[in-house]
Design a protein around this nucleic acid. Structure first.
Lengths: 298, 298
DNA sequence: CATGGGCCTTGATTTAAATCAACCTCCGCC
DNA sequence: GGCGGAGGTTGATTTAAATCAAGGCCCATG
């Protein structure tokens, strides 16, 4: 019962030592170990992206309380999300407060105006957030990608709707659980405040786009913002590949345009050699600099 | 030194007792007492607006450390702002962390892109928040009225500009002081989170407006949102009076329109009898219901 | 294999709002 | 009193994007 196997990994990069200590219970199967090792390899190869910080040096696998409670501990999304505010030691609390769920494309996660009972942390896929007018006109206010926390509202009701764009994985928190987390872990609340401040800054950017930019500038801005968010595989070829999981309708509703204008504008940018289309849901940025200055209106 | 004068005021309204207890140091001058009494009278006459809540029953004037420290205690804006998260007993801390300042119209409070060193709580007048493009196009992302807290940013730099619309009074917090307030008073941080969540909801509303509403709908929405925010003197005549301290240029930059379109649309609404203009900076809403349905696109 | 329906693209035409232009009304100031 | 400029209104014209319309591509399904 109390037996465990210890495993230490020292990983030196740029004269900085990253020490990972794992406590493995003896009943762990070889297959699970293999998964662990592949995860380590992934971590080391992708470290330019995952930003291993000194505060995250120790990572303990405490497996005494069953599989579900280590869920958050091995969660690859943690670094990108509000969950990294909780210490390794308290991750079981986080795991207990949340529940992982998977949804197919087009699922409604949040209904506009419904009582706000749940909050979501996106751990896979993309969710669209929107507001609607009675006659059906719709404005997508943002796309929530991996690491995005959504559902926060001050009134007791959601002021927006949320729907999955592609296959989506989320961690779901109930209102009460989240509230106790907020009071118990001030650093978690702080992290949430930082997140929502970022979101507000994005919203302000989007207001500038919607109120004052031309169709060309909007599309260019959109593609660039997607470049930053996408896990762009920067291989030998330097031109970043942007993935667009959403349809043209979604893009149009995000940019305050019609599908025809979006389509025409993308075609025009392609004709001018600024971008190259792979398929409808993937675009290669050929001239990031020009696109950038176009997005800012030059 | 330790001597003090106690003064209790029991104020009964609708069968609810509001008990205010003041501890006055003996060295208090009569003039200060007079100010206190005029404040009490003001409180009682304006209670329909100030919403005296049971939680705010005790209000102690602890004046041992000089006039500046009771600033927050007698602040009429406190109830409307994040400052109401701090208990009466700790208000001296709040007063010490902030500084009140006054500015004439057209003063820059926050420069876009400058290092974020200060935060402001608006206690009088209206501030416009905006983002700009290199060529001068500007989008006003919001008007910060009394009670609004501004300056929060996650990056170290302001992502927006802020400029006074009319004569403005603010309480200014330095970054370091605010940060220590946040850690020392979790309820203050909570209040800030609520405030920024509200702001985000407003931003999403505005995105819907900018992306999907017609000029008429935008102007109608704007007038209505101003009705709610304005301290509308609901006298005998039921038609609410909206104050518009900002210029037509500001309204246009807020609504993503040109001044000509704003002017024309307001004229059209007036011609149709939905509103009546007093002067350029005041408008009387004659048909709130119709304006509401117009704002939602019917 | 044909059918139909998403989803996207492209072209022709229309339109809401922008732009261009003129003028009005205050208000401060020489 | 005359001048000038800021802020606002109104009219004529232009234009960027919407709307209307047609067709292509892909894939699931009978």
């Amino acid at each position: 019962m109390g037996k465990a196997l210890a495993l230490a990994l020292i990983y030196i990069k740029n004269n900085v030592r990253f020490i990972y200590t794992f406590y493995l219970p003896v009943f762990w199967q070889f297959s699970a170990l293999q998964g662990l090792f592949s995860w380590i390899v992934h971590l080391m190869s992708a470290d330019t992206q995952t930003h291993i910080t000194p505060t995250r040096i120790r990572r303990r696998l405490v497996l005494s309380a069953g599989d579900d409670l280590r869920r958050c501990l091995v969660c690859e999304v943690r670094e990108k999300s509000v969950c990294n505010a909780i210490d390794d030691d308290d991750l079981a609390v986080l795991a207990q407060a949340s529940k992982t769920l998977s949804f197919p494309p087009g699922t409604t996660l949040v209904e506009e105006g419904a009582p706000a009972t749940a909050f979501f942390n996106v751990t896979g896929g993309t969710v669209k957030l929107f507001k609607s007018l009675p006659d059906g006109r719709r404005q997508i206010t943002g796309f929530a990608d991996v690491g995005h926390f959504l559902g926060l509202t001050n009134a007791g009701f959601y002021s927006f709707g949320a729907e999955t764009v592609d296959a989506v994985r989320v961690c779901r928190f109930s209102r009460t659980r989240l509230e106790s987390l907020l009071t118990d872990y001030p650093q978690f609340e702080r992290r949430l405040l930082e997140g929502i401040a970022d979101e507000l800054a994005d919203a302000q950017d989007q207001m500038l786009l919607l109120g004052r930019k031309t169709a060309r500038e909007r599309v260019a801005s959109f593609l660039l913002s997607r470049t930053i968010q996408s896990p762009c595989q920067a291989k030998e070829d330097e031109t970043p590949l942007v993935s667009l999981p959403m349809t043209r309708v979604d893009i149009a509703d995000f940019l305050g345009l019609t599908i025809e204008t979006v389509s025409r504008t993308i075609s025009a940018l392609r004709r001018e050699g600024l971008i190259a289309g792979t398929d409808h849901h993937g675009i290669r940025i050929l001239a990031p600099i020009q696109l950038e200055s176009l997005a800012l209106g030059q």
